[in-house]
Structures are given as C-alpha cells and as structure tokens.
Design a protein around this nucleic acid. Structure first.
Length: 110
DNA sequence: GACATGACGTAAT
DNA sequence: TATTACGCCATGT
C-alpha cells in the first residue's frame, strides 16, 4: 500500500455517517491538492474496507451539488446513503451545503 | 522509462 | 451549457 493510499484512507474513514465529500476535497485533506484522480483510483483499491459510498464527484466546477460517479456501484451507493439520511434531489445530486463535510486541516496544508 | 487509462477537478473557450 | 485541455497520482503493458 502506497503512502498516498494510506493518507487517503485515513481521510475517508473519518467521514461521519450522513455526510459526503468530493474526490477533490479528499485529496486536499490528504495533503495532495489536485490529485482527485488518485483518490478515485484509491477508492477502487480500498473497496469496502472504507465508507466508500460517502465519496461523490463534483460534476461541474463551483457546483453546489455533487453526484455519484461510479457507474457500476451507483445503485448500491445511493441506497446506502439514503439509509444514512442523505437526500438526493430530482437530478440525483446531493446538496453540498446540507451534506458536505470538510475535515479540519493542518495549517500547513491550507 | 514511455505511454495509456481511470470512481476526478478546474480553467479556458 | 458544452467541449477541450491540462494537472494530478497509481497501475499495467
């Protein structure tokens, strides 16, 4: 397991129930700003050992809502999130203002 | 080591 | 709003 994956894992496992983060935010919180792609790759590798369903994607820049990216596990992901209380709007998106979660970051990384 | 690919994000056009 | 281009990181060929 690479050091990068370990850092990503440490962030993901802290996401509280009923909250979600974007790939980009996870990367930033892990000290890897801009490495959203690596987070996606890591999520696939980590699989069900972490609360993978709480990581969604920001479809458009500056968008206030995020959507499920993983096409293969999308149905299960949505079911798990709704069970935790996360609400999806008619377009299948989640409002960040309500369910988004940003962890406290070391000052160095902010 | 070069190159392509992928559960991504952002800025420019 | 849609498309394009590029940056980022790990893997596989």
């Amino acid at each position: 397991m690479s050091d990068t994956f370990e850092r990503i894992r440490r962030v993901v496992v802290k996401i509280p129930r009923g909250k979600v983060m974007t790939y980009g935010d996870v990367a930033r919180a892990a000290g890897l700003p801009g490495a959203a792609r690596a987070v996606g790759y890591a999520m696939r590798a980590l699989g069900r050992t972490v609360p993978w369903q709480r990581v969604l994607g920001r479809k458009n820049p500056r968008s206030a809502h995020i959507t499920i990216v993983d096409a293969r596990g999308k149905a299960e992901q949505r079911r798990l999130l709704e069970k935790e209380g996360v609400k999806f709007d008619p377009r299948g998106a989640v409002p960040l203002a309500t369910f988004g979660w940003i962890p406290r970051l070391p000052k160095r990384l902010r």
